[in-house]
Amino acid sequence: MRRRLITTALAATLMFGLATLTAAPATAASADLSGVWMPTAIGPDGNRNRTWPAKPPLLPAVQAVYDAYRVRADAKPEEYDNARSCLPYIMPRPMLLVAQYPLEIVQTAERVTLIFELHNDARRIYLDGRLPPTGLRPTWMGYSVGRWEGETLVVRTTSVRDGTIDQPHGPKLTLTERLRLIQDKDGKTMLEDEIAVDDPETYSEPFKVRNYFRQRAGVEIGEYFCSEDLWQQNLSGNTSKIPWRNN
C-alpha cells in the first residue's frame, strides 16, 4: 500500500518534471535576460568603461568628411542630433548610453524585446531562425536576428538607417552583439553587451565596443515622453514655442 503511494508520488514527480521540460520552447534559452537594467559607465572590474573608441578606425576619406561634419554638428547639435528633436537613437547608440535611463528586457519564446525607457523605443530581436527580409527600408533600430550560443545571446543587426551623430556608419553596417550575464568583481550580476562594429565603407577594420548594465530587481520602468515639455507648455497656455498653436 505504502509502496504504491511512493510509486504514485514518484510517477507524479516524473510526470510534472516531464511536463515542465516539454513545455519549454524548441529554441530553449539557456539564460533569461529579462528584467530592468540600468546602464553604467563602470565596468565589472570597477574601472570606467569607454563605450566608443576615441579614434575609431575611420577610412581616411570618411575621416575628412566626418571631421567637417563634427564641427558643424557640435556648433548646432539641436539641428544635427535627431534625438534633440525627440527622435529615437539610432543603433548602436541606444545600447551604448551610460545615462541613467533604464532598459527593460522581455524574453519570450523565440523573441527578445528591449524596451528603452528613453523615448519608449522598442527593439525586437527574432530568435526563430528567420533571415532579415530583403529590400528592407533602413530603420532606427535596424533589423535584428539572434541565436543562443551556450548562455550568450548572439545578435546580428543590419538595415540601420544613417544620420547618427556619434557613431558614423553607412548602409553596409553590420553589428554583432554578444549579450551575456557576467559577475562583477564583487560577485554581483551584470549584463554585458559586446558589440562588433563592421562597416567596410566607413571603417578600415572591424572593432569591438562594450557596455555594461546593472540589474535593478523590483524597479518598475517609468513613463518618459520626450515631447512632455511641449505638452505641458501647451496645457499652461504658453504656446509661443508651439508652431501649430500660433497660426
Binding site: V62, Y69, N82, C86, L87, P88, S227
Partner: peptide, 28 residues
C-alpha cells in the same frame, strides 16, 4: 512611435528652410 515625431521634425526643419541632417556617410 517614430512617425509622429519624424513628421514634426521634418516640418520644423522645413519651417526653418533647412535640408534634413546629412550623416557623414551619405556623402562619403
Amino acid at each position: 512611435s517614430v512617425l509622429c515625431l519624424v513628421d514634426q521634425w521634418r516640418e520644423d526643419l522645413e519651417r526653418r528652410n533647412q535640408t534634413l541632417v546629412e550623416g557623414p556617410q551619405s556623402g562619403a
